[in-house]
């Protein structure tokens, strides 16, 4: 039984094995970019939006409002990053319903890559906002003694992100596979429906946590402490 698409080699190019995770990622990317491109190619301000454009606007404004609730201000760069995380993970998890399609998010490599992206993006956003010295100073606050704990906390956040997403998606896929072998006609449907729900929730959680981490790194100490407690 294959539990990760990393092991499925689709083709090899220049000696490098291109596995199903990467190919399926490209498929998700193509779908996201293609749909966006088709809907947004002829936008005009004086023409009322159609149904598909309205749907996209609803998604984008919902993401924007969520980001603004967290960061308490308009932060488009954060939205580009966290919104892309949400859309990519959500579409990958939704494609779970397609038979023989392994979501990229069911690969620990993908979730690790996304977690590493968040792990790198958080200090980058912090440095971009505060400057190197002020950002690094936040690691020794409230005292120098907290430096190792802050560093451990930073890495543990990334690891928890990766493991949480992988565990949820993978567990859903594994359970679906097991139940498929036991009761092929009933349980897969139920598990797929449950997988859609948990997939969307996981996408939301991953995106929100990424936005919270970034806002924590870019915000002042007092509000950030409050958000940490909230999460």
């Amino acid at each position: 039984m294959q539990i990760t698409p990393d092991e499925v080699i689709v083709f090899t190019i220049w000696g490098l094995d291109v596995n199903a995770t990467i190919v399926n990622t490209w498929i998700v990317m193509a779908l996201l970019v293609g749909i966006s491109r088709i809907i947004t190619r002829n936008l005009r301000a004086d023409v009322p939006p159609g149904r598909w454009r309205t749907a996209l606007e609803v998604i984008v404004t919902a993401i924007q409002s969520q980001i603004e609730e967290i960061t308490e201000k308009s932060a488009r760069h954060v939205m580009y990053f966290a919104g892309t995380l949400f859309l990519f993970i959500a579409l990958s998890n939704l494609l779970l319903v397609i038979p023989a399609f392994s979501p990229p998010t069911s690969s620990l490599s993908t979730t690790t890559a996304l977690a590493l992206s968040v792990l790198v993006a958080v200090p980058l956003f912090g440095v971009a906002k505060k400057g190197v010295r002020r950002y690094l100073k936040s690691y020794i606050e409230p005292s120098v003694v907290m430096l190792p704990f802050n560093i451990i906390g930073e890495f543990s956040r990334g690891i928890s992100l990766a493991i949480r997403l992988y565990g949820n998606v993978m567990s859903g896929a594994v359970i679906a596979a097991i139940l498929l072998s036991i009761a092929p006609f009933f349980f897969p449907v139920v598990m797929n429906m449950l997988g859609l729900l948990t997939g969307l929730i996981q996408a939301y959680i991953f995106g929100i946590l990424a936005a919270v981490y970034i806002s924590t790194a870019t915000a002042d100490p007092e509000p950030s402490a409050h958000k940490e407690d909230y999460l």
């Binding site: 990393d6 990622t25 490209w26 488009r76 892309t84 690790t112």
Partner: peptide, 24 residues
């Protein structure tokens, strides 16, 4: 695969920024 996925993700961020977020 991790490196490739990071690259894919960054490309996706750029593509969605260009074809989704900004136009919308």
């Amino acid at each position: 695969t991790v490196v490739a996925q990071i690259a894919n993700f960054l490309v996706l961020v750029w593509l969605l920024k260009r074809f989704l977020y900004r136009p919308i």
